[in-house]
Design a protein around this nucleic acid. Structure first.
Lengths: 192, 192
DNA sequence: CCGGATCGTTGACCAAAGTCAATGGTTTTT
DNA sequence: AAAAACCATTGACTTTGGTCAACGATCCGG
């Protein structure tokens, strides 16, 4: 249990066997079925979830009932409403499972205690958030500076696994497009 | 010197006078004139810059010579090409001064040494990057889920100081719009 | 194995934003 | 103080993506 989590942790900050054993006490496993919510708009986000296996997405629903996908997360990624988690404010979006998934949860009390007791956990956290920041910046700059075709080509180059496993209309939503438009863009790209 | 920097630092992690004195040795001040570059596309980003006073922006220039503004930063903010800074790869965008500004620079060697020698500096860094992440996520979700009018209204509500000090066409670029479109949106909003 | 969702594609039409060009006001430079 | 550069606005036109509707294919649950 927690294999992927500790593989990931060790790749960022090496842990001794004792440290691993201690940290394990702060973790809890969770299995979640396809379409199940991990977090709903209005709830308070009580956990950070590391994905051992599977795929989840976070998304908001607007006044017209349209979903807008904020993030995809596969194995090795972390997903949460960080704002809600850190501030205790209600979440402003949903998280649910795209596939049956296995998670490692770290709740707020555990997170805070780990931060002060294990400097390595703080480093792990800092590196995770830094990676998340860089990934989001790539996405943002691509949104504001690249033509749509290039954005999509770029996306399939960086995240081929997501393209394989996630329905196309969710990817359209992630890119801020309608499914129809994405379908047309794909046709344009293919005919080149 | 460094007043704003340490005020900011202490608001996140309290320092003793001795710690402040030690950390000062890792910092260097820099003044930069309006329109001067802090970083140019292709350079390697050697410093993180904390803004004591003034305003800067980061932006990319596309194949047609159009600028796309990635970030504004005023007093109390940090600006850098974090990707380039962390990896040593050449920067993919520019940073320049919108106003005459005063900066506190932390170079890479200093940053790394501070991280290992001062756990408080790692906490400071973690909190900074977390804030940057949350701010960027707000921006991103607003781009993908709000109609443009609302995005602009939201922007002036959150960053009134930027609206005051930064020319409108830069704000248009930041929002992914042409200056003409932003001008028309403003008219629409005013006539309500 | 059947029936209903879900999904991707396509077409016709519409709405929104971009482009190009001109104008007038303001700021900056010399 | 005059010239130049910069900036916001407006109008006419074009391009792009969104909307609505229909159709087949596939997936999934009973």
């Amino acid at each position: 249990m927690y294999e992927s989590f500790f593989r990931n942790f060790n790749s960022k900050v090496a842990l001794t066997a004792e440290e691993e054993a201690l940290i394990k006490n702060y973790l809890s496993p969770k299995k979640i079925r396809k379409k199940q919510y991990l977090l709903q708009d209005g709830d308070i986000c009580k956990n950070i979830a590391f994905i051992e296996k599977g795929a989840l997405k976070s998304y908001s629903v607007d006044d017209n009932g349209n979903e807008h996908i904020i993030q995809f997360a596969l194995e090795g990624w972390i997903i949460a409403d960080l704002y809600s988690f850190l501030t205790g404010e209600p979440a402003t979006y949903n998280i649910d499972a795209i596939e049956d998934s296995e998670l490692v949860l770290i709740n707020k009390a555990a997170h805070e205690e780990l931060l002060v007791k294990f400097p390595k956990y703080e480093t792990f956290t800092r590196l995770n958030i830094t990676n998340a920041y860089l990934a989001m910046q790539r996405r943002l700059t691509s949104i504001i500076s690249s033509p749509i075709e290039e954005r999509y080509s770029n996306f399939i180059a960086i995240y081929p696994d997501i393209v394989q496993r996630v329905p196309q209309h969710m990817i359209a939503s992630y890119m801020g497009l309608t499914p129809e438009t994405l379908s047309r863009i794909r046709r344009r790209i293919l005919s080149k």
